Amino acid sequence: MKDRYPSQPPTILLVEDNPGDVRLTREAFKSSAFDATIESVTNGDETLAYLADCGDSHPYPHLLLLDLNLPKTDGFDVLEELRGNDDHPQLPILVLTSSQADEDVLKSYELSANAYLTKPDSPEEFVEMAETIESFWFDEVQLPPFPS
C-alpha cells in the first residue's frame, strides 16, 4: 500500500450516526496498523456536502463506508445521488450497516454499491473487518485515479 499512496495516507469517509460505531471503526483501523485518515459525517446531507467541498477544504476520499439507516438523507438516497451524479462515478462505496435484510442488500447493489457489509458484533470483529478492507480495497484492487 505504501507505494500506491506515497504522499499521504488514503482517506476513508465514514458515514455513521452512531458515535459508538464511529469510535469502534476508528479504533479498528488504528489497531490494524492501516495508515489511513478516517473522516466521519453523521448523515446523508453531511456526506453530500463533504463530497461537494472536496479539494477546497479536504481531500477526496478513496473509499466511502456508508450506513443505510441515517437521519435526514438516508444511505439509499446517498447511493442514488452519488451514482446518478457524474462528479463521483468512481468512488468505491461499501455499505456498512446492521441490516441483514435481503431487500436492503438487493437495493444497495441495484443502486451500484460496490459491496455490502454487515456491521461486526465485537471490537475484534471490527479489527478483522478493517484488515479485510485494507487488504482487499487498498492492496489488491486496482482503484481508479482520484481527484486531488
Rank of each mutant, 00 (worst) to 15 (best):
L63D: 04
I12H: 07
T37H: 08
S122R: 11
D121G: 10
D53L: 03
P19N: 02
D74F: 03
E110F: 03
D139H: 11
N85L: 02
L48I: 12
D3P: 13
N69E: 05
Q8C: 12
D77N: 07
P61L: 07
P19G: 03
I93D: 00
Q90R: 12
E27M: 15
T97D: 05
N69C: 07
P144D: 10
S99W: 09
P145R: 09
F34R: 14
P92Y: 05
E81N: 08
D87T: 13
G55K: 07
S7Q: 06
T97H: 01
D87H: 13
R4T: 14
R4G: 05
F29R: 08
P120K: 04
S148M: 12
S57T: 05
E39D: 14
K30P: 00
N43G: 13
E125K: 10
V141L: 14
G44K: 01
G75Y: 00
D17I: 04
R26F: 14
L143W: 07
K72F: 11
R83V: 02
L117P: 01
F138V: 08
K2Q: 14
L117N: 02
K30C: 08
F34N: 11
Q90W: 07
L65T: 05
V22P: 00
I93N: 01
V41H: 01
D139P: 00
D67G: 04
P71W: 05
D77H: 11
E81D: 02
I12M: 08
S31D: 11
V95G: 05
L51P: 06
L65A: 01
P145V: 10
A49K: 04
L106A: 15
D74I: 13
C54M: 12
P59V: 11
A101L: 12
P120D: 09
E103Y: 14
D45S: 08
Y5V: 04
G20H: 12
E134W: 14
V41R: 01
G44A: 09
D139S: 14
T11W: 05
S31W: 07
Y50C: 04
I38F: 11
K2H: 15
L94Y: 07
P92A: 02
N69Y: 01
K119I: 09
W137I: 01
A101W: 06
Y109A: 06
Q8N: 14
Y109H: 08
E140S: 10
F146R: 14
L106K: 15
T47K: 04
K30Q: 13
K72Y: 04
V15A: 10
I12R: 06
V78G: 01
V127T: 13
D35R: 08
E103V: 12
P9I: 11
E46Q: 15
L94E: 02
L143F: 01
Y109L: 09
S148Q: 15
D102A: 15
P123R: 07
D74E: 10
T37M: 13
T25F: 02
V127P: 06
V15S: 03
E128A: 15
L14T: 11
F29K: 14
D121W: 02
F138R: 11
D17L: 02
D56P: 00
D53C: 07
L13C: 07
L48A: 08
F146K: 13
Q100Y: 08
F29Q: 11
A113K: 07
E16Y: 02
T11R: 06
R23A: 14
P71N: 09
D67M: 03
D56A: 13
M129S: 06
S122P: 03
